[in-house]
Write a protein that binds this DNA or RNA. Sequence first.
DNA 1: TTGCTCCTCACGTCACGTGAGGTGGC
DNA 2: TTGCTCCTCACGTCACGTGAGGTGGC
Lengths: 162, 162
Amino acid sequence: MSATSSVVEGQATTWRIGEVAKLTGLTTRTLRYWEQMGLLTPKSHRQAGERIYSDAEIDRARRIKELQELLGFSLAEVRVVLETEDVLDDLRDAYHADPTPAHRLHVIHRAIEANDRLLGRLDDTLTQVQAFRDERAAKAQRLRRKAAELRDDPGIQRKERR
Amino acid sequence: MSATSSVVEGQATTWRIGEVAKLTGLTTRTLRYWEQMGLLTPKSHRQAGERIYSDAEIDRARRIKELQELLGFSLAEVRVVLETEDVLDDLRDAYHADPTPAHRLHVIHRAIEANDRLLGRLDDTLTQVQAFRDERAAKAQRLRRKAAELRDDPGIQRKERR
DNA sequence: TTGCTCCTCACGTCACGTGAGGTGGC
DNA sequence: TTGCTCCTCACGTCACGTGAGGTGGC
């Protein structure tokens, strides 16, 4: 919001690549690579080629990062997800440009499908992480019980376990 | 359990690399690579170098996969986690070999620390995935509402949004 | 002029994928 | 002998990391 070197142009706040990196936890190298791959294009390039990003690109960068890190998507998979969302955004932008209602309904149905697929994968990872977490929580309990035993009775050699 | 080509040697079931691959969802290349990195060593090599795995290695392979895919760990990070667990296993094996109780307590405390760190990271990812999931669920609702509107009233150009 | 951030190559790295060419047991 | 799985190189790939060498505005 009030970053020292943010630039105001017209109305909207814009950012340099180093600022985007700090805000998103990415590196400048990654941002340039994603641009090269056609995943994240800066709003504009300034004189001498300096990249200028808007808030929309910050959101997009965060989305890409989530899809990669939380769901293990490759950039090719990320691309597919983002493309269906871009289509939806285009639809919204062109809301009065009169595409036929039938076409709009079709686009929305594709968006619903894509979204539901994502939801499904998220639920899958959720249950997997849950199961893994429960295992670790149980192990934490066992370890603490063991430590308590050793503290109370440090000299006793127990016969259980072999 | 009753895989066709599983081998019985003494009492325990053993597996060939291709069987391990199928059981774990990994590739044989990955299993060999992890061995080369010192992360997963087969129980033994047979004549002509054929790798023989036991159930313990299947479990270990699954653990490595979980740490990689669910938590995004690099193999270097996986190594650290597994090493602290290996120490615990050694402790259990040497339970009657009389290490001092003080030393045992120390090892257990380190294991508790390591386990709690993992638990913390699991809880972090859990909340992140949850938040992401909730976003998607909300979007699913919005999309379905929109689709219903279009179905009920396909000809109307609404004035909301811009 | 000095600092800071930006830029474009371009080679390096991590974790494998993918053949190439060959061996061993039913 | 034919099929199948195994083996070891070894080059390729994906997603960046990491300098090298240079430009531009306070």
